Simulated scan of single mutants.
Amino acid sequence: MDSDQKHLPAGYHDVAPNMLATIVTCLEMTARPAPRANPPTDGLTVERWNAPALEDYRALYRRVGEDWLWVSRAVMEGDELAAIIEDPAVEIFSLMRNGERLGLLELDFRQAGECELAFFGLDQSLIGSGAGRILMNVAIDKAWDKPISRFWVHTCHLDHPAALAFYQRSGFRPYKRMVEIFEDPRQTGKLRADAAPHFPVLQAE
């Protein structure tokens, strides 16, 4: 580890009422893992989503991520977001049933030799149904079909409580932990005021 890297000292650190603090875990795999069987698909398919319209993309992003306080793509300027999702090195897939988009998978190959699992999420109605395994199997296959040596992802404790264990079962290995502090998007109107009820809003005194 870089000895010059700064770390928070041991102890408690106050966070302003309008800010959120979360523990981020970074995970990686450096070889394709052994395949895991898909559960019954129950009519679900995973389809490539080429150059989605910004509002359609943001709608699905919010659908799967708002209650886990996903905010970055919801507030990103349109030109900046379009440059990412239209980049040929970024591959976007959606989990579909009867024409409805119920899950988001985004693979970012912009760093040579690597793939970032940039976004991975399901509609709340599918959590615990096995749909996550279907989507992850596609993610692993699509990532390792390219000439990469590393596939990585990060998650935080604002995500679904089963997310970290799911990534580990899928073959990812934790390698770094960070603290992220950012403005609470529910207090600025960037996300619903009642989003993520498992992580209450703090009111300034």
Rank of each mutant, 00 (worst) to 15 (best):
residue 130 G to C: 03
residue 73 R to K: 15
residue 136 M to R: 11
residue 117 L to P: 10
residue 146 K to F: 08
residue 116 E to C: 03
residue 54 L to P: 01
residue 56 D to C: 00
residue 161 P to G: 09
residue 90 V to N: 12
residue 119 F to R: 14
residue 127 I to E: 02
residue 134 I to N: 00
residue 84 I to A: 11
residue 60 L to A: 04
residue 55 E to Y: 07
residue 110 R to G: 05
residue 148 I to L: 04
residue 141 D to V: 11
residue 116 E to T: 06
residue 70 W to E: 11
residue 98 N to H: 09
residue 40 P to H: 10
residue 45 T to Q: 13
residue 92 I to W: 08
residue 108 D to C: 08
residue 157 H to P: 02
residue 126 L to V: 06
residue 123 D to H: 12
residue 99 G to Y: 13
residue 71 V to N: 14
residue 132 G to D: 00
residue 152 W to G: 02
residue 164 L to N: 15
residue 102 L to Y: 10
residue 118 A to V: 03
residue 40 P to I: 06
residue 78 G to A: 05
residue 31 A to W: 02
residue 112 A to N: 02
residue 139 A to M: 00
residue 84 I to P: 01
residue 74 A to F: 08
residue 151 F to H: 06
residue 115 C to A: 06
residue 133 R to S: 10
residue 104 L to K: 12
residue 44 L to M: 10
residue 91 E to A: 03
residue 135 L to P: 01
residue 135 L to V: 06
residue 77 E to N: 13
residue 89 A to C: 15
residue 88 P to K: 08
residue 157 H to G: 13
residue 75 V to P: 08
residue 51 A to K: 13
residue 77 E to Y: 10
residue 43 G to S: 09
residue 43 G to L: 15
residue 119 F to D: 15
residue 58 R to T: 04
residue 163 A to R: 08
residue 55 E to M: 15
residue 68 W to S: 13
residue 90 V to P: 07
residue 159 D to Q: 13
residue 29 M to N: 08
residue 68 W to T: 12
residue 108 D to A: 07
residue 128 G to N: 00
residue 41 T to V: 08
residue 104 L to W: 06
residue 107 L to F: 08
residue 70 W to F: 14
residue 136 M to S: 05
residue 95 L to D: 03
residue 67 D to Y: 07
residue 117 L to F: 05
residue 139 A to S: 06
residue 29 M to A: 14
residue 85 I to K: 01
residue 157 H to L: 05
residue 104 L to S: 01
residue 156 C to N: 13
residue 95 L to W: 10
residue 82 A to E: 11
residue 127 I to A: 11
residue 27 L to P: 02
residue 44 L to W: 04
residue 145 D to A: 04
residue 145 D to T: 09
residue 80 E to H: 10
residue 60 L to C: 05
residue 155 T to H: 07
residue 30 T to F: 07
residue 48 R to N: 09
residue 118 A to S: 15
residue 44 L to P: 01
residue 69 L to C: 15
residue 103 G to D: 11
residue 131 A to P: 00
residue 121 G to I: 03
residue 101 R to T: 08
residue 32 R to I: 03
residue 162 A to W: 09
residue 80 E to F: 10
residue 164 L to R: 14
residue 159 D to L: 06
residue 114 E to L: 00
residue 90 V to L: 08
residue 52 P to V: 01
residue 69 L to A: 05
residue 134 I to C: 12
